[in-house]
Design a binder for these strands. Structure first.
Length: 296
DNA sequence: AATGAAACCTGACAGC
DNA sequence: TGCTGTCAGGTTTCAT
């Protein structure tokens, strides 16, 4: 499941491989679920643009584009800006391939580059989403309802960055919330980028049970959770993310952080610290794994 | 406003 | 062999 560390890995790999490349043309598949912007808009924005850089915002991959200046422009050399947003959903992949490599099943978009390589968006379950934002011109197609308030500089996401937020701001996010801390961690309007794996792993490291009410945690607990979450995310990024199902980076290479999981998907197995069997419950509709002894 | 649950999707796997 | 049921979980949508 691509969460913050996996998306970061994909974005970095993509940036390394395609920064500066010009997009010559775009192919979009028949299935419409992946396209949050009208396919015609996506094709129109991407074709002819140059990739300025690729980066991550929350769980989104943001491809910053420079569009060719309008032919009859008298406004000098004002470059037009746009963004291509990619959300990998559950099973999405963004692969950079040579054209002679067979196109995998469930490929929904192919972006052809000047040097003939291709960026391929592959997503069997079609939970992933593609959209575009035209920043300089009139807004053609916002990436979604929540993005309608996007400032002129483009996509910023709906919540705070877990790796940037201060301990004080982190604590304030949960004030007064009666929902389980696990649900709050998964809420992208509070923090964006945290998914099921890193929610479970950071709660284990912080010694907090997932069903504890977010607003009732002590300052000390939240300070510990803040530190644990950042540490887990940084370590996972360093290892190229977690490959639990079919996650791979832009070269099709798997990550290694799944080997470091302490509780995630370990229901019934002994806790690595105290040997107590890891419990599996359901919180916010997700499988949730924790140690009843190590976490209070 | 906040919260929870269902729906969207397909592939992998267990059990019969 | 082949069927059925369950699980995976990010996000949206609907209900409470």
């Amino acid at each position: 499941m691509p969460e913050l560390p996996e998306v970061e890995t994909v974005a970095r790999g993509l940036d390394l491989r395609v920064r500066g490349q010009k997009i010559t043309s775009v192919w979009l598949g028949e299935k419409l679920e992946p396209f949050r912007s009208p396919p015609a808009d996506i094709a129109a924005i991407l074709a002819g643009s140059t990739i300025e850089k690729v980066r991550r915002v929350g769980k989104h991959i943001v491809v910053d584009l420079v569009r060719p200046a309008p032919k009859q422009s008298r406004m000098g050399h004002a470059a037009r800006q746009a963004q291509w947003l990619v959300h990998l959903g559950m099973t999405g992949r963004l692969l950079v391939s040579q054209p002679d490599v067979p196109v995998p099943p469930h490929t929904h978009a192919i972006v052809l580059l000047e040097d003939h390589r291709e960026i391929r968006f592959v997503d069997p379950r079609r939970f992933g989403r593609l959209s575009v934002i035209d920043i300089s011109g009139p807004r053609t197609s916002p990436a979604g309802k929540q993005d309608r308030a996007q400032p002129a500089e483009g996509f910023t996401g709906s919540g705070r960055e877990p790796l940037d937020i201060s301990p004080q701001d982190f604590r304030a996010l949960f004030r007064g919330r009666r929902t389980p801390i696990k649900s709050a961690l998964l809420n992208q309007k509070l923090l964006h980028g945290v998914g099921n794996i890193y929610a479970d792993e950071s709660l284990f490291r912080a010694g907090i049970r997932p069903l504890r009410q977010a607003g009732r945690l002590t300052g000390k607990q939240l300070a510990k959770l803040h530190a644990a979450l950042q540490a887990v995310l940084r370590e996972a990024i360093a290892l190229g993310g977690s490959s639990v199902s079919d996650y791979v980076d832009a070269d099709g290479v798997r990550g290694f952080f799944q080997l470091e999981h302490k509780v995630y998907l370990r229901g019934g197995e002994p806790c690595l610290v105290c040997r107590t069997p890891i419990r599996r419950i359901v919180v916010a509709g997700r499988g949730t794994h924790y140690c009843h002894r190590c976490q209070e």
